[in-house]
């Protein structure tokens, strides 16, 4: 028995060592670095304790970035999980087989477009002078709503969020469609026999039966929303006036423009803590509510 255990441990050891080296060690090292002030250009590090975290508390850009990430996460969960599940259920329950295949492809296409290309494409759409959105508003007689979408601090981050939803919505819809397809048909038949309408069936059968997939997608979209970087860098660079900074872009800016590596490590630790807690809570919650067939 003991020998077998030893053999099992031996087989697992290389994977564990790699995970420890490439996942856990960087996390520990990042937490350690967040307790120092240092520049990459100068030798030596100055131990400052929790000073970098105090700096974050007093940094308005940090709070703005955190708020932007939260807005990003909430919107992503609503669209990429909630709305995508509704669309997946409609596709599977109401649309004919041929049209269903076509629609699935249409929804998925944006996910195949590179992030940089999508970012540039939306920049053109948002152009205040000749962009499609303002032109459309003008021709509909809604010119008063025409706007410098990415140039106004009030709308810049939402311009980025919208692009991100457009790109990821079809992908999550596909994943949820697969989950919906795996629900036994008998459950829907039983619901129909019991007199449940479409909405009731959706909430009583579809939602609980795809909980594993929705849990996974919530974790992925929330952690993705807190790690968002490319979209912002391509479309706004964090501006104007830091209005579209996210924790990822502010970390990068603090490290490579501000040369404040310790502060950047502190922001990284905060990002890790948020995504870790969000993931753990969601996992525990879904385990309690798991439904078995």
């Amino acid at each position: 028995m003991q020998r077998r255990r030893f053999r099992h441990a031996l087989y697992a050891a290389p994977a564990l060592a790699l995970i420890a080296l490439f996942v856990y060690y960087p996390i520990v090292e990042n937490i350690r670095l967040s307790l120092f002030k240092f520049s990459v250009f100068q030798p030596g590090m100055r131990y400052v304790g929790l000073e970098n975290y105090r700096q974050a508390l007093q940094d308005p850009v940090f709070w703005k970035a955190l708020a932007n990430n939260l807005g990003y996460a909430v919107t992503s969960v609503i669209f990429q999980v909630g709305a995508a599940l509704v669309l997946a259920a409609i596709l599977e329950g109401l649309i004919g087989r041929r049209l269903r295949g076509l629609l699935r492809t249409v929804y998925f296409v944006p996910a195949a477009v590179s992030m940089t290309v999508a970012g540039l494409l939306f920049q053109f759409l948002y152009q205040p002078d000749a962009g499609l959105i303002n032109s459309a508003l003008e021709s509909l007689g809604l010119g008063r709503f025409a706007h410098d979408w990415l140039g106004d601090p009030g709308t810049s981050i939402w311009g980025v969020v919208t692009m991100s939803q457009w790109q990821s919505f079809g992908y999550t819809t596909m994943l949820l469609t697969v989950a919906v397809q795996r629900i036994p048909r008998e459950l829907y038949e039983a619901a129909t026999v019991d007199g449940a309408g479409r909405v009731r069936t959706f909430f009583a059968v579809t939602v609980p039966m795809v909980r594993e997939m929705t849990t996974l997608l919530v974790i992925l979209t929330v952690s993705g929303a807190f790690l968002v970087f490319n979209e912002v860098m391509v479309m706004t660079g964090g501006g104007p006036s830091n209005s579209s900074q996210t924790l990822g872009t502010w970390l990068y800016s603090s490290a490579f423009t501000g040369d404040d590596m310790g502060y950047a490590a502190a922001i990284g630790t905060v990002m890790f803590a948020i995504t870790f807690v969000a993931g753990a809570v969601q996992l525990l919650h879904s385990r309690r509510k798991a439904v078995a067939v």
Binding site: Q127, P128, D148, L150, G151, T236
Partner: peptide, 8 residues
């Protein structure tokens, strides 16, 4: 300057 410099 025109109105759209910030995002261009």
């Amino acid at each position: 300057m025109g109105p759209s410099g910030t995002s261009m």
